[in-house]
């Protein structure tokens, strides 16, 4: 189960400026390689895909494996050509999809 993703990026930027975006979603990231008290393997359940679009164009993606820590954190750079909206999407093994978006003003 995951909950409220969080992102950090500037509210505004100049045209063509390269900014840093930080993202975080709370999720157990159960690796599927752990055993519970009576020796049963706890089934894998992780966020397996993270995608970022800007005005619906894909900017950055991450194909995620069980070795990524719980509460996955991704930090990356993006160039901001014009005002618009970043959309962030996390896909869970169980099919759930978590999204959030942030607008940015180009002065």
């Amino acid at each position: 189960m995951a909950s409220k993703p969080r992102v950090k990026l500037p509210k505004s930027a100049s045209a063509g400026e390269i900014i840093t975006i930080k993202t975080l979603i709370s999720h157990e990231m159960e690796s599927g390689q752990r055993k519970d008290k009576n020796g049963e393997v706890i089934p894998r359940q992780i966020i397996n895909k993270f995608t970022v679009t800007f005005n619906d164009k894909t900017v950055f993606e991450a194909d995620i494996e069980p070795a990524i820590s719980s509460n996955p954190y991704f930090e990356f750079a993006v160039k901001v050509p014009e005002s618009g909206t970043f959309k962030f999407t996390w896909v869970d093994d169980d099919g759930s999809v978590y999204e959030t978006e942030e607008a940015i003003e180009v002065a």
């Binding site: 070795a67 991704f74 930090e75």
Partner: peptide
């Protein structure tokens, strides 16, 4: 040294501006 060596694959685009990425992993 991990049981499964895969960790993550980052994919960039022209809009990335710089090929820079950071995350946190289990060792």
């Amino acid at each position: 040294g991990n049981p499964n060596p895969d960790v993550v694959t980052f994919k960039f685009s022209e809009l990335s501006g710089e090929a820079i990425a950071e995350t946190r992993m289990r060792l």
